[in-house]
Write a protein that binds this DNA or RNA. Structure first.
Lengths: 163, 163
DNA sequence: CTGGCTGCAAATAATTTGCATACAA
DNA sequence: TTGTATGCAAATTATTTGCAGCCAG
């Protein structure tokens, strides 16, 4: 029952290294630092550029293209998920080690915050889809747009002031 | 109870024209043709480029930038939804007139087809999120990845041949 | 009329690619 | 050693923007 929450970052990097090696890839300095950055910020949804800037702090020689290539690779390996929230750039989200990775997103339309929630009430729906459409679901993505708690509080204050 | 399914395309364009005019916008030839193309292909998920090519058939003078601007405008007006499936380009999806627009997507990882399904078992979940996180849900997006019926059939055949 | 709208071309922004060199296994 | 990976710069792709003229209301 070990989830990634139970493992140190080094252990997780080691696990991922095995995946890499198994497919004939190498764990370079650049890839390791990139992984470390992702693991240290598992709740964020960084763009390639943002990852690049953070990696650069620990490894200044790295090039942006390498970060793109690494993220692409990690995406293929199912280590990260590439998501597009509609602002210009793709964002990258760590998947959980066990492959279930079912966190959903609460995207605030006021402040742009993206919060992750762990939740899974979708199994029933997936089964229904499989039955009804003959579509074999392997994965899903569920995002909610709306107004987060903080922005609602602000809105309430403003209305009070205005009213 | 009139849904957009009950209305002719001209009627729908007229409805949308009212929205436009109400906000001080004009219904130009270009916008009308673009709308017509979208309405005639309501089950597709075209990129701006694809819309452009289709509009060009009926209105050759149009420029790509105009299509982008029109789609942006229609997006603001909630007439279309701008979605990003992760291939390089944004795609545009008609919303239903009543604003509910809750269709979800079945994205086949084999052939790339995107099928729409009308379904809404998410109300309960939205309510739970509101209670649990204080997040006021206004909209959601639910996509399923997997293998569609057709590709599964093909896979089955191939396995048979191989086995 | 006239302010919004358009087409065009140039500007951005994100991402990819070619290539000579560097380095992990 | 040797093929994979990297950094850089140039190329590509999607989208946006400036601007002079155009047209719907």
């Amino acid at each position: 029952m070990a989830s990634n929450r139970d493992k140190s970052i080094s252990e997780q990097i080691n696990d991922i290294k095995k995946h890499l090696v198994a497919k004939g890839y190498k764990l370079t300095q650049q890839r390791e630092v990139t992984l470390r950055v992702l693991l240290e910020h598992e709740k964020d949804h960084f763009s390639a550029e943002e990852v690049f800037l953070l990696v650069k702090e620990q490894f200044p020689e790295i090039g942006l293209a390498t970060v793109y290539r690494t993220l692409e690779l990690l995406s293929d390996l199912q280590v990260v998920e590439k998501i597009n929230f509609g602002d210009g750039a793709a964002r990258f989200d760590l998947r959980s080690t066990d492959g279930s990775h079912h966190h959903h997103h609460l995207i605030c339309t006021e402040c742009g915050t993206v919060e992750e929630i762990m939740e899974d009430g979708l199994l029933r729906l997936e089964q229904q889809i499989e039955r009804q459409y003959g579509f074999a679901v392997t994965d899903h993505r569920l995002d909610f747009q709306g107004v987060c708690k903080e922005c609602r509080a602000k809105q309430a204050l403003n209305e009070q002031a205005a009213g």
